[in-house]
Design a binder for these strands. Sequence first.
RNA 1: GCCCCCGUAGCUCAAUGGACAGAGCAACUGCCUUCUAAGCAGGAGGUUGUGGGUUCGAAUCCCGCCGGGGGCACCA
Length: 605
Amino acid sequence: MFEKEQQLIETKIKEFCTANDIPLAELKWQPIPFSGEWGLATAFFQTAANEARAGRGSKAPVPQRAQEIAELVKAQIGSVAGISRIDAVKGYLNLYYSTAEYARRVMEEVLASRADFGRGAKKNERVMVEYAQPNTHHSFHIGHARNTILGEVLARLVEFAGFETIRASYPGDLGLGVITVMWIYDKLYKGQEPEGVHERGQWLANLYVEATSMLEKQENETPEQTAQREAYDAERREMYRRWDTGDTYVRELWRTTREWSLEELRAVLHMLDVKMDVWFYESEVDEASKTIVDELIAKDIATDERPQGGAVIVKIDEKLGLTKEKYRTNVLLRSDGTTLYLTKDLALAKMKFDQYHVDRSIYVVDVRQSLHLQQAFAILKLWGFPQAGKCYHLGYGFVSLPEGAMSARRGRVVLFKDVADEAVRRVLAVESQKSGDIPASEREKIANQIGLGALVYSMLSVDNNKDIVFDINEALSFDGRTGPYIQNAYVRANSILKKAGKQVAGTQVSTSFDYELTKHEIELIELISRFPQTVEQAANEYRPLVMAAYAYDLANIFHSFYHAVNVLQTEDEKIQNARLQLVMAAKQTIENALRLLDIQAPEVM
RNA sequence: GCCCCCGUAGCUCAAUGGACAGAGCAACUGCCUUCUAAGCAGGAGGUUGUGGGUUCGAAUCCCGCCGGGGGCACCA
């Protein structure tokens, strides 16, 4: 917002250094910390160090010489319009903005852009974010929720940062797990179908647990039990074979049961306000993946060992000319001619590049699949896709339970829907004592917004490379560094504006901040002004946490401001108008941040 | 054996080369006839696992060690 002034000063510094033979290092600017005032700072340590190395300048120690240079530069610059003061402190040059002017510029920008405040300039690049890849015939658990929330927030961030963004889901709708559920359904539960989308999804998950116990080798089996188990397994294998050959009955059974899972997935995505653009199904990619194998063999990227009774493999390190073991060797086609996960991911990547013209491809996948994805990216590079360098794996630590890893097999999972329901119950339980007057018709909706807000924020406030041990009391906490804390800041801002009523309508952009601002107002304006660069950083680094941390900081400062400064009781009308405008800007910025975090902003709570 | 990630306050986590390492939770002290206390203010809590190195400057970069987690071709 002060780019022009900054440019002018940079030019002056450069001129001064050239004239005085000072080897100026690159100028890096940062906000002045702990000042209670706004401004930019740059350090001269590097310059002083350069000078010392070249044997020039005074023989003073670096910090002292840096301070000398800062003082000389300060004297040289003189006064600049829009900059109230320049200080040389501890080797830093601090430029303080004129407060009234700074506040005016920030407010003007927020209130002119509104929902677009912080939006980055349009980039000519198309990004695809792939997330939400649960297996069908199971139920959506809290680990899937972390994946989906991270993916959605990342998509929102890159989209808001200016990239054309495509959201892609990739459900795993084939494999032994799927067949296992179909087998037990067909054998024991045919014709049954619980009411309710989520109930049906959970029922399938339970069938899987039951089937697993029937098919797994038990300790101290009697010969009869062993025979029984082997018979079951033979039935399951037969069903897999029939599925493979396209048997009408089995395929129909598959489509029906799969649809139950997909309905549940769509319902969960709807709850999380996720609108997928593209659905890739593993079963569909499977067909396509068979054709790429021949192409990779023809290009001499893959090695066909089938004539020797082996598989089709890619010796990745060898093909890349690496002498040290890095990507190793991986199989593309089993010796029985069936494809693997890697084969499908390669085919899918090709589809993304060729059909969807994706320039940048982000995979939100569990960190344990890091090697696998690095292998896939390396093969894409060998294949000659220029986008291979812009494939990025956003790995995240897995979500486990206090009693250990989740296991769909054993039914030891925490289902997303159960947690979400519990969240709503807990909000409703405290609503009567904590909330103001909320119309009965709104209660459920607001409880949903707050409950999900708590859950979503708990998934975002931990950096993605960290594992999470899921504790429902922590995830659904409403106090302190949580979603509801941020939502409450929004509600309070809204409440002030609502009560102000008339004044808001009359508030003009011409409002002046030409009065002595309190420390809280200064901090609030400062943080609002940093929103655009925070969006950029979070999107560039693919880190939702950066935005989550910002939203908390902004809410935190707003809460302090709220207590310290009573807006509606401000007597001077001019000052009150300025403060109302500040509240409007804060409300807007919190709203924009919450939207990026996939958390709803309730009007009351 | 090789590769990746992590080690920061009692606990859960921030801060990725800059000025004084910050929050929340737990515990402690205050603040509700006030724009909603899902909040605010205050004190307490740290030789950033450890030993070296690079740098004017290191929680951050490099090397060693200790401790924890994950992964290493016909699973996904």
